[in-house]
Design a protein around this nucleic acid. Structure first.
Lengths: 246, 246
DNA sequence: ACAAAAGTGTTTTGAATACACCCATGT
DNA sequence: ACATGGGTGTATTCAAAACACTTTTGT
């Protein structure tokens, strides 16, 4: 049975990717003809959608991810609700909503998620989308529609907090990775440099990264050993540790 | 200008209190006449409300807190959205919604908050409410309407996580407290016992708890010194510390 | 005097940090 | 041979954890 869209609730997703020391967010193109101002508009926004009447928010989020990247089983975390009555106030945004949904839109509350994907796994699908999508480096994101800039900022804050206690950053790396890639990733996310020897010591001490019998190929320096994250070991070893109090 | 209620979005709040080694949640009575089944219903639920068309979610949450406890400036944290289309499915709950709002209700998405209040500060106001409210020990909470049990469980999980990195648990204690009260609080929240000497050592090392020149009165044992939390010192001293990685 | 909880110190173990050089590969 | 990043060890400092007895009050 076909379900109707609920015009009050939407979902928006900050999809993070990591490539060669840079943190990127996947943005989609928004193109439409603003019939009031008789102008064609083309800009970027976060991927998102209204939610169907009978659909859960998580389902809507996965639906968007699937449609955009072709992938299932992606890391997804709900982090906040953006609900200012002013957020759908700009004329251009209202015109776009009207043009794309055909529904008369008033206030929309959006539930924000962030998602972590391995940078290049989606790129095959991305190339063939009708709605074009672009990986945009986090520092190069300009003014976006609605409150999408706030959503990204706040999402990144949440991600930063989260990686302090859980090894989810690995979702951004390929299955096999070098310790240098791992360190680069943490340095970008946390925005500070780490001592290479101490970093490696810590990784080894943690006990759930296992070295493979494989090394990098075709780099013009000493090739690095590849590692993988051992999820089963992680779950076993993981012990709660309170930073504020004993 | 009077604003209408938005019948799609609500806010529910898990209000925590702590008293004499026990963690409590503030629940309100729900009484109504179920005209379909010709029965009077009286049970407990989380405090909550639909949101006005022009109101932010945070505002709705503070409105509920104020009306219930008479207090402003209460610690409040949004932690999740509960959106299962099934959550408003039970007949009795639908009858109650119909009876209290007068609006025809379909699916309601609720945004959940938890709040920390100093146990007895609200009790003056609570005694005079039309809608009766009860502090209920966390272990004694039985089946509640909608998905309110899930909301409480998940809220407590979030609170547990949060106190690992921020000293918000203090919101549950009076301004002046003994180290024993503080330890009891952490033991209840984290659900394990701590070594008293090590606990005190840690508190002193943290450097933002200051001993007052005051002691407990009229206890039939050696009276304990009172302490206060020094917010300014806390902000100064607080240094980021990553538990998962360097 | 007794009951009840407050308050205190030492030792051991392990993580965090700081720091500089040799190694393996491609060109 | 040289440029490039990979990979390694030691010493110090500090927090975490384990552990038992004396002190002060009210009754």
């Amino acid at each position: 049975m076909k379900s109707k869209l609920n015009p009050h609730i939407s979902v928006d997703i900050v999809i993070f990717g990591f490539d060669a020391k840079s943190l990127k967010v996947l943005l989609v193109e928004r193109t439409f003809h603003d019939s009031v101002r008789r102008k064609s508009i083309k800009d970027l926004k976060l991927p998102g959608s209204l939610v169907f009447e009978r659909e859960t928010l998580d389902h809507a989020a996965y639906r968007i991810l699937k449609q955009l990247t072709g992938l299932d089983q992606i890391y997804l975390d709900q982090f906040a609700v953006f609900d200012s009555p002013e957020r759908t106030k700009r004329k251009m945004d209202r015109a776009w909503l009207q043009a794309t949904t055909g529904i008369k839109i008033g206030r929309i509350i959006t539930v924000a998620y962030y998602s972590l994907i391995q940078f290049d796994r989606a790129n095959g699908q991305l190339a063939h989308l009708k709605q074009k999508a672009h990986w945009t480096e986090i520092g190069d994101i300009h003014k976006l529609p609605f409150d999408h800039n706030d959503i990204i900022d706040y999402g990144l804050e949440h991600l930063r907090e989260k990686i302090r206690s859980e090894p989810i950053a690995l979702e951004l790396l390929p299955k096999k990775f070098t310790l240098r890639q791992l360190q680069d990733l943490y340095e970008v996310l946390l925005n500070y440099d780490m001592d290479n020897r101490n970093f490696r010591k810590k990784i080894h001490r943690l006990g759930y990264f296992t070295a493979l019998n494989e090394i990098e190929k075709s780099v013009n320096h000493k090739p690095a050993r590849l590692y993988k994250f051992d999820k089963a070991k992680y779950r076993k070893i993981r012990k709660e540790s309170v930073s504020f109090l004993p």
